[in-house]
């Protein structure tokens, strides 16, 4: 019992510690990167239980802000190989368990 309690505590600790967004890979410009990151955070917090809605929100906002043909993948586990326009890719982790990949390709 004690072990599981500790485990839970650890998990909570982990969640708390790792709630910040961590950019894994990007080639965006500074300004764009910050904006995209904030957008991803907002979307993931707003649709904490529905990744599809979050992805939809990010995609639509990005389309409005930076022109069309954005693609968004959100999930806890996935692999991908994408072709993207240079300076238009962001791959980040969020909340300790989510991976968000945003790229543009028309």
């Amino acid at each position: 019992m004690a072990g599981t309690g500790e485990g839970k505590k650890e998990e909570a600790d982990y969640k708390r510690l790792h709630s910040f967004p961590l950019i894994r890979h990007t080639d965006m410009s500074e300004e764009m990167r910050v904006e995209t990151m904030e957008l991803c955070v907002t979307a993931c917090e707003k649709f904490a239980t529905n990744n599809e809605s979050a992805a939809k929100m990010i995609k639509e906002s990005m389309d409005k802000k930076f022109g069309s043909s954005w693609h968004v993948v959100i999930g806890e586990g996935f692999g991908f190989e994408v072709t993207h326009e240079v300076k238009n890719l962001l791959y980040m982790f969020f909340g300790g368990s989510l991976a968000v990949c945003v790229w543009k390709c028309s």
Partner: peptide
Amino acid sequence: PPCRTFCATANQ
């Protein structure tokens, strides 16, 4: 526009 490929695997 110039393109580049990027690949990664996301898991826990």
